[in-house]
Design a protein around this nucleic acid. Structure first.
Length: 493
RNA sequence: GGCACCGUGGCCGAGUGGCUAGGCAGAGGUCUGCAAAACCUUGUACAGCAGUUCGAAUCUGCUCGGUGCCUCCA
């Protein structure tokens, strides 16, 4: 018996525009593909938000008992800077500017990506394939599409024939566009002489002599088009049809639309049952983007070395901040919002820490089982992490009251409470209590306990000058003493 | 210009036809040597205008403001 058999999960599906009841193709198994980063510069917080949304989705699906194959690619073949023929691959450009090999660019920023995600306590995906590792598969798909008559070659480049595809299929169904609008509203771009129509997109591009990244193909020495790698890799590892495809909202059009077109052209049916799109993280009210420079890097947040924040923030606090908003809402990043999240996060962690010291009694003032199901209901409703967090704070309130002897709980209920809190806080939301090294923590505890005893003696002797000195100076060091009914405890910030 | 989306109390941010979201901040109280922490109590918010309805922040229309996509981007 798995949890998913008791919980009805609904997912907002971009394809249908509504929350659909989730039903995997193969019971108990889920295939999920998420478009990963293009590794030509450091991953910024906006990128992180999207991947974090899917990290929590991955975690919750696993928590429900599904066997999930989660594929998140690394785009290391670059993309063209624009749609024109003279466009330059971003990775190649970076390599040229820094006078290094393109693969050095890729390696550097792939390592950065992994390091940052690790700090945020991401679970690694099941498979993390690279575009350059799947050139052959991409060429095979192009051949297939050409055989179906939906692509054409011009001067060694191959383009997808969108208008012809649209005669039998519906190009634009994901992003709600129709082909006439697209035709009438296409911007004038130079250098598109090779395409039959501006809506067509490249499957293969012939490399100019100066282009560094190139592979042989039946049409030319060149490189694959912008949208093909995801079709190739998702098909290879998840099959022609799979359950969930995710990515940032900005990829909905044209990237995901083109993926659908390629897969339908190649395999004759729609590739994905549930399309999910995470919304943008904004900074100063504008989308964060590498290309515009409106962004903040995670390491700048952790170190406090930036112009936006008043202090440094721990990865966990940032994670908590992001998860306090729903993944489909735009979230604005600011100092005030982060400060508020930090306090809330600390409050949650303090409650977690005192969970083991609670005393039980013969009755409960708190309907733990109802609360537990409310937590599930929150996540079942399109992964509503802010509602879940609100529920967690309901529990925090109860925990604090029990600790103060103002409410009671039975042993059985306390066990349920502990299990559920641990499951949602650590397993599903992926938060970690940022405690330092265990050894150091024990030593620190010993030292602070000693000071607490000295202060208690001073207070007993009405030597408040000494007792307040201990309390205030510890506070200045970030150690807060808390006087309760049965003695003094402390917390480190 | 086209297509979407959004506008919630001091701040962040859920909800979306009648039922307390939650966090932070603020106010009052309990506790304390004084504090802090914790706990209790406390806020009649839904851009504006008009309409539908017994009832709208939630539906419809218009107005204003903002964002995203339409070109690589999470």
């Amino acid at each position: 018996m798995q949890l998913y058999q008791d919980q009805e999960l609904k997912i907002y599906n971009s394809l249908t525009g509504q929350k659909d009841i989730f039903k995997p193709i193969n019971e108990g198994h889920i295939g999920m593909y998420v478009c990963g980063p293009t590794v030509y510069s450091n991953v910024h917080l906006g990128n992180v938000r999207t991947f974090m949304s899917f990290d929590v989705i991955f975690r919750y699906l696993k928590h429900l008992g599904y066997k999930v194959r989660y594929v998140r690619n690394i785009t290391d073949a670059g993309h063209l800077e624009n749609d024109a023929d003279e466009g330059e691959d971003r990775i190649a450009k970076k390599a040229r500017l820094e006078q290094i090999e393109p693969m050095e660019v890729v390696q550097r920023y792939t390592v950065d990506f992994h390091t940052i995600l690790q700090k945020f306590n991401f679970l690694p995906p099941s498979i993390e394939p690279t575009a350059t590792g799947h050139i052959i598969e991409q060429i095979e798909i192009i051949k297939e599409i050409m055989d179906k008559g939906l692509a054409y070659e011009v001067n060694g480049s191959v383009y997808f024939d969108v208008l012809k595809f649209n005669e039998t299929n519906n190009y634009g169904k994901l992003s709600g566009r129709n082909i006439e609008d697209l035709i009438h509203n296409t911007r004038e771009l130079s250098g598109q002489t090779e395409k039959r129509n501006p809506q067509d997109f490249a499957l293969w591009k012939r490399a100019e002599p100066q282009h560094i990244m190139r592979w042989p193909s039946p049409w030319s020495d060149g490189f694959p088009g912008w949208h093909l790698e995801c079709t190739a890799m998702s098909t290879k590892y998840l099959g022609e049809q799979f359950d969930i495809h995710g990515g940032g909202m900005d990829l909905k059009f044209p990237h995901h639309e083109c993926e659908i077109a390629q897969a339908e052209a190649c395999n004759g049916h729609s590739p994905v049952n549930y399309w999910m799109h995470a919304n943008m993280l904004t900074l100063n009210g504008k989308k964060m983007a590498k290309s515009t420079g409106n962004n903040i890097l995670p390491n700048e947040i952790f170190s406090g070395n930036n112009d936006i924040l008043s202090k440094a923030f721990a990865p966990n606090v940032v994670r908590f901040f992001i998860l306090q908003a729903h993944y489909r809402s735009i979230l604005d990043f600011s100092n005030d919002a982060l400060l508020a999240s930090e306090k809330g996060f600390n409050k949650l962690m303090e409650a977690m820490n005192c969970l083991d010291q609670l005393e039980t009694s013969g009755s409960s003032d708190f309907d733990v089982n109802k609360w537990k199901q409310d937590c599930y209901n929150a996540m079942n409703d399109d992964f509503n992490s802010p509602i879940l967090i609100a529920q967690l704070f309901e529990a925090v309130k109860q925990i604090n009251q029990i600790k103060d002897g103002k409410a009671s709980i039975t042993t059985e209920d306390l066990n349920t409470l502990k299990e559920t809190m641990n499951a949602f806080v650590f397993e599903v939301l992926g938060l970690v209590d940022a405690v330092a090294d265990k050894d150091d923590t024990d030593k620190l505890s010993g030292v602070v306990e000693l000071l607490i005893r000295l202060r208690a003696e001073a207070r007993a002797n009405k030597d408040f000058a000494t007792s307040d000195k201990i309390r205030d100076e510890l506070l200045a060091m970030g150690i807060q003493l808390k006087d309760g009914k049965d003695g003094t405890s402390f917390s480190v910030s």
